[in-house]
Computed example of a mutant assay.
Amino acid sequence: MRRPIFCALFLTLLLTAPSFAASTPEQRGRTYAKAHCARCHAIGRTGESSFKPAPPFRTLHLRYPIETLGEALAEGIVTGHPAMPQFELTPPQINDLLSYLKSLE
């Protein structure tokens, strides 16, 4: 009786765990962007940013070479407007987010 319940619970946890749900750098980067950036930026291939001054992620490569953003992400991006929070990413987070941004080019 307990085995089917355990199996169902285990399968649910397995399929919803972040490490399994976002297994590639691009997927982890998209997950990060969705959690931390989507409030202002359009993070997908379509759509408008909810905060007009925030550029859609799919256009960032037109403004900056994506590869050059790694250092800024590590040190903390500061923009010309006060609405953008300052933040610093870990090296794995930087790799994942840059991988996701590259996938949007």
Rank of each mutant, 00 (worst) to 15 (best):
R28Y: 01
T24M: 07
A21Q: 06
P18N: 05
F6D: 02
T12P: 03
R3Y: 11
S19M: 05
P4V: 02
L9H: 03
T12C: 13
R30W: 07
Q27W: 02
R2M: 06
F20L: 05
T24I: 05
E26A: 10
L15G: 01
A8M: 14
L15E: 05
A22E: 00
R30Y: 07
C7N: 14
L14Q: 02
F10I: 14
E26Y: 00
L9F: 14
R30Q: 12
A21N: 03
L9M: 14
L11G: 07
A21E: 04
T12Q: 07
S19D: 06
S19W: 10
P25F: 04
F6Y: 13
A21Y: 12
S23I: 07
Q27F: 06
S19F: 09
P4N: 10
F6Q: 14
T12I: 12
A21D: 04
L9N: 04
L14S: 09
L9R: 10
I5S: 13
P25Q: 10
G29A: 09
C7R: 14
F10Q: 09
S19K: 01
L15R: 01
A22F: 15
R3G: 11
P4D: 15
G29T: 04
L11C: 08
A22Y: 14
L14P: 00
R3D: 09
C7P: 01
I5T: 09
P18W: 11
T12F: 15
L11S: 14
F10H: 03
R2Y: 14
A17G: 06
L9Q: 05
C7W: 15
A21C: 09
G29Y: 03
S19Y: 08
P25H: 07
S19P: 00
R3E: 04
R3S: 05
T12R: 08
A17S: 08
F10E: 04
Q27N: 07
M1W: 05
T12M: 12
S23W: 11
